[in-house]
Design a protein around this nucleic acid. Structure first.
Lengths: 234, 234
DNA sequence: CTCACTATTTTGAACACTCAAATTGGAATA
DNA sequence: TATTCCAATTTGAGTGTTCAAAATAGTGAG
């Protein structure tokens, strides 16, 4: 059985890879896990011994298929728990992350199955992150970051890529939640800001904030990317 | 912060004291915790250092007020989780113990408060065990074990003092669940068995099985011991 | 009073994880 | 080529929990 720490490392490596790194550098992993670099070296060797990761010394780590499978199971638990807390226990989506971080290591396979069933086998958590199914399959979506918008256009918010409660409350206050339709009014590449309209509100976002908002752009013909179901928020 | 292991030891010591021991012998604690005796000696010293227990060398351990407070908080979490699993997630009461054993160490104070509120601040878990409130207060009941019955009589089952799923399924099959009314037909002190009627069923129980069934006897005038609310089972 | 028995305690070691601090490797710079 | 610098690694140590096995204390029997 994978220990709690092992699950956390594997999950973190998966998320870093997901964020675009094929090989996660040790230093990055160290700061993400909030441990000293030497600890990562030690742990990565142990993870490699149990076949969950492969690594190039002084280069970085990468998950093996077994590691990826474990990561997907942990994320499945985490995201189902988040949605459960929001839907059933009426938590606000801005405050479920830390709770799920604990519970993901404590719930049994049986309990997760019950929750999945009760929620109707959802595909996305309250933040719009995809929930892997019991076999590890994840829905693939072609989303674009709001910061990559080059001109005006309409789209639906599909995902908020930040778990910080403060940012999430800020987003909620402005209607920036998965499922909301937004219109980009103008983009200022030099000033690094973007003006948009959400509902009846007009607002301006800086580049780094906009980078956290993932959007499915409305195509003229209405492709299936328009249909975003990201669960209930609030 | 008390570690998971510490919480388990403290909870166990509380339960053993509750079962009638003022001073819990190390050997008993060792087998209850499923560790070798030496481990208990080490742990008890550590617990004493943090002020949670007091102990007489070679005699046994006892909780301090601080230890009792901790035990009550852990039991509160455990029992609220059990009831939540039964009521909300439709688990059978025979299968919630192990799950709660894990979750009790992972839930936050905030989540427990939500659950408590959602369930309507219940006083008892599915097995009839009392749920301490947030300040550590526990309902006191004057229950008697079915094995102590000396003659025929009527009463209400208030609590089943065994968490073994097999025993609980056996009990469920025979209608021996908290809230059920039973009538003692006859007691055989030599054969160590007791005949009773529950609902429309008649059955015979041995002494040790009967010892696990705690009953509030019906008084002729109907005291408030008759009113047993032990939540929903099933 | 001594023996035997059982419960408890001590000792030394292990495992999983972590840190601080010294060292090394490799790449970029001068 | 020699120097500098940063990332990664090694080393030695500590924490919390556990075990196996040897030593000891107390209790009751003879």
């Amino acid at each position: 059985m994978a220990t709690r720490t092992v699950e956390d490392y594997i999950k973190r490596i998966y998320l870093e890879q997901q964020a675009g790194l094929e090989l996660v550098p040790f230093g990055r992993l160290a700061s993400a896990m909030d441990v000293v670099p030497g600890t990562v070296t030690t742990m990565v060797k142990a993870l490699a011994d149990s076949g969950l990761v492969g690594y190039e010394p002084r280069q970085g780590v990468r998950l093996t298929p077994a590691g990826e499978m474990l990561a997907l199971h942990v994320l499945r638990r985490h995201r189902l728990i988040e949605l459960f807390l929001v839907r059933v226990l009426r938590f606000d989506w801005s405050e479920v992350h830390d709770e799920a971080e604990e519970l993901e290591h404590a719930v049994s396979e049986r309990l997760i199955e019950r929750i999945d069933e009760l929620l109707g086998r959802p595909g996305y958590d309250p933040h719009g992150d995809p929930i892997p199914d019991a076999t590890g399959r994840v829905a693939q979506r072609n989303l674009e970051s709001l910061s990559s918008a080059r001109s005006s256009g309409r789209g639906t918010i599909a995902r908020i890529a930040d778990q910080d409660p403060e940012f999430l409350r800020y987003a909620t206050d402005r209607g920036l939640i998965p499922g909301a339709v937004l219109t980009v009014e103008s983009v200022d590449p030099i000033g690094e800001s973007i003006r948009l309209v959400v509902g009846d509100r007009s607002l301006t976002l800086g580049r780094t904030a906009a980078a956290k908002i993932l959007v499915a752009w409305a195509s003229p013909l209405g492709s299936d990317l328009d249909r975003v179901d990201a669960g209930t928020n609030g």
